[in-house]
Write a protein that binds this DNA or RNA. Structure first.
Lengths: 135, 135
DNA sequence: TCCAATATGTTATGTTATTACGTGCGTTGC
DNA sequence: GCAACGCACGTAATAACATAACATATTGGA
């Protein structure tokens, strides 16, 4: 899991989906990825979902649960994908990926204090990015 | 917004949906609420979604985005719903609602440092609760 | 080569959420 | 009283998101 992008041999579909996400300015839904890949031969949602699942497993992309969309990871090689936070601008849709060890630790210990052992976290902030707030 | 439950005059549908969520052990999806309220005359998803929307607005319930479900707020009167975190047990489905000012502050300042102004946050942890981990 | 694992293709279906339109009902201001 | 309004509600249709089930193809060892 979580390996450098170039060390992985992605399949054709995985490559196409990953490339689509990497070149997108905003998170994309599975169906909008599907639409963008029709010309490449994609016909069904499952082709997208299967690729997405693998890419997440490889740590190359993230799923944004609050908006049912997916983004390429900004730091695919760093290996610390466990508690990434995402700030999603509601105006331009762009995403800031925040990777903060202190916050991760704090949240993890909060969970522990509540007798909870975390296997996966979703931290998503919605609001306005700098640029959009000014305009 | 965010007012004591008894100070609000809920409509009939809102009352039914709220009562359903309060008496549930686990988060419920909109459609499972609908099913539970068929006998009360509910026929369509929109009846549920409209009530849910209002109840969220009133601070009486929370939406769990990672599992497309809803729970009654444990502290409907506390007024600090802005950055609640939820620990969702993947075994028993029960939810622990964590309200921690320090973490909220930390996360908020993280966002600020990234030039982001937060309007809404989603913090959801998935894993195992104490009871389920032991068993 | 043969086997097993993995990836792919396709159809159908399940689940979650919203749009669009119309009705009823209580309140406010005249 | 009674328009005008706001708001909750009812209903049908549909959009958007996701998976099940089954068949076929490809790949990479033993």
């Amino acid at each position: 899991m979580t390996a450098p992008a170039e060390a992985l041999k992605l399949t054709k579909n995985q490559t196409l989906v990953y490339r689509t996400l990497k070149s997108a300015e905003e998170p994309l839904s599975a169906y909008s990825i599907l639409d963008q890949l029709r010309d490449e031969g994609f016909r069904a949602p499952l082709q997208v979902y299967r690729a997405l699942e693998k890419l997440i497993e490889f740590g190359l992309i993230h799923r944004l649960e609050s908006i049912n969309s997916f983004v390429a990871c900004r730091h695919p090689d760093c290996g610390t994908h466990e508690m990434a936070a995402f700030a999603i601008c509601e105006s331009c849709n762009r995403v800031i990926e925040i990777n903060d060890a202190a916050m991760a630790g704090h949240l993890a210990s909060l969970a522990r204090n509540n007798g909870f052992s975390v296997s996966h976290s979703t931290i998503e902030l919605r609001g306005l990015c700098d640029t959009c707030r000014v305009h």
